[in-house]
Amino acid sequence: MPRSRLVFWLFFAPVLLWLLLLIVLPHLDLLTMSFRGENDYGEMGWTLQNYRNFFTEPVYWLTFVRTALYALITTFITFLLAMPVAFYISKLARSRVRGALMILLLLPFWVSELVRVYGWMILLRESGVLNFVMLKLGLIDKPVEMLYNDAAMIMGLVYTSMLFMIVPLVSVMESLDDSLIEAAHDLGAGKIAIWRTIILPHCKPGITSGAIVVFMLALGNYLTPNLMGGKNSLWFTEQIYNQFIASFNWNQGSAFGFLLLALSSLIIWAGLKLTGQRLGEVAS
């Protein structure tokens, strides 16, 4: 069908403005800012100093490595927890129950992340609900601080990003034909063989897209590590925040920001390459 140029430009212009002004330009600005800084005379100029600081100050790169590792661990735990839940919903639950379970699954995630983290804080902290219950039951003698440590933080991250793993897993599992599993079973395959040779290979696209989203959400999270992690469990986004808001050193902050962006892009790219998929397919 022939379309007029006018209609084309009507669609094209706002999209181009959006992507150019709000996505491309700001990130180019981030990149240039990260290579600028003051020299010894207090003049602005091009420099690698911001990146040099990152590699010479152990606290910066250690936080960076820690954040990346913990984000990976979070992704893996989320996957382990989401797999059986997705399997139950798509293959074991009756169809009426399935719809209800999906709604129940979605509801907590529509509520602000802050409310969810706050809920965990009043559950876990020293004067919290869990401590109160355990004291009453006589399980412990004095309150234990369960918040403000790495385990609590990872649990919080798993909790907040859970849904983004379960939903893609459910949708790929629903497309898996039951008769394949039945045939394997009839031919004498055990549970482990069925999981390894049929279910997991079929779920690969869902696992990839879920893992990418969860990893990125964990890596870029600020709220959960900040409120649930301890004083010693710095997250890299907190370093960025500190540079921007507390120290007002925007150039250093830009360098950190760009490093984080590079890391997340690299890992996502590697994930897509390993599983032989493209971003376009994963997104839809």
């Binding site: 700001p26 990130h27 981030l30 990125m216």
Partner: peptide, 16 residues
């Protein structure tokens, strides 16, 4: 934007 962490988007826009 699906793969850009929200914090990075925030600081880039602030800078720009």
């Amino acid at each position: 934007p699906l793969v850009i962490p929200g914090v990075i988007l925030g600081i880039s826009l602030l800078l720009a």
